[in-house]
Amino acid sequence: MHITIPTALTLFRILLLPVMVIAFYAPFHGANVAAALIFIAAAITDWLDGWVARRWNMGSAFGAFLDPVADKLMVAITLFLLVQENPTPLMAVTSAVIVGREISISALREWMAEIGERATVRVAAIGKIKTAMQIVAIVVLLYQHDLEGLRLFHVGEGLLVIAAGLTIWSGMLYVRAAWPILRQQR
C-alpha cells in the first residue's frame, strides 16, 4: 500500500494523541499549554490532509477510512481527559452527547454505505461548523488559564455546550436524511 501525503498527515495526527495525553499529565508548569498546542497541531493536520487530498487529487480509500477515525479519536480521547480532570455533570453530559453522536452517526454512515446509500448521509456544512466549535471549545478547555479576569474554563464549558447543541442538530439532520431508508422494512 502506498501512503499518500494526506494519509501520512492523518497518521501523524493519530501519533500526536499519545503525545498530547503525556503532555496533559506531565508534571511541569505549562503542561496544559503544551497539550493545547499539540491538539491545535492535530487540528491543523486534519484541515491540511483534506486540503492536500483535494488540491492534488491524492485521495485514497485508506485515507477516506482513516481520516474520520482519527477525528473521532482526537475528540473522544481529549474529552475523556477533560472529564477526568473536571468531573462535573456539565462536562460529563456534554462530552457523552458529543461522543455518543460521533459513534451513532459513524455507525449510521457505515450502514448506509453498506446498502449503497452513502450519498444520502454526506457530510453537511453544519457538521463542519460543529467540528470547528468542538475544536475551539477543547483548545480553550485544555488551555485552562484565565486571561485578565476572564474565566476561560467557563468560556470553554459554554463553547462545549454550544458544540453539543450543534452535535445534536447535525446528528438529527443525518437521521432525517436517512429516515426514509431506515423506515423501510427489509
Rank of each mutant, 00 (worst) to 15 (best):
M1I: 12
H2E: 15
I3L: 14
T7S: 13
T7I: 11
A8S: 13
L9M: 05
T10E: 02
L11Y: 10
R13S: 09
L15W: 07
L15K: 00
L17C: 10
L17N: 09
L17V: 15
V19H: 12
A26V: 00
F28C: 02
H29F: 14
G30N: 02
G30H: 02
A35R: 02
A36C: 03
I38F: 08
T45R: 04
W47A: 11
W51H: 13
G59Q: 14
S60A: 04
S60C: 03
F62V: 15
F62G: 10
A64M: 10
F65E: 07
L66P: 09
D67W: 08
P68G: 00
P68V: 00
V69A: 00
V69M: 00
A70L: 03
D71F: 00
L73M: 12
I77T: 12
L79F: 08
F80V: 15
L81E: 11
V83D: 06
Q84C: 07
E85K: 13
L90C: 12
L90W: 14
L90H: 09
M91Q: 09
M91W: 07
V93T: 05
T94Y: 01
S95M: 08
A96M: 07
A96T: 06
V97W: 04
V99R: 03
V99Y: 05
S106A: 14
S106R: 07
S106L: 07
E114D: 12
I115K: 06
G116K: 11
E117T: 05
E117S: 09
A125P: 11
K128D: 00
I129Y: 00
K130C: 01
Q134L: 09
I135A: 10
V136I: 15
A137M: 03
V139P: 03
L141N: 01
Q144A: 14
D146E: 10
R151T: 10
L152T: 14
H154N: 12
V155H: 11
G156T: 02
V161E: 05
V161A: 13
V161G: 02
A164C: 00
G165R: 03
L166G: 02
I168M: 06
W169A: 02
W169I: 01
S170W: 01
G171N: 04
M172L: 13
R176T: 06
A177H: 06
W179I: 07
P180K: 04
I181Y: 15
I181H: 12
R183W: 08
R186D: 13
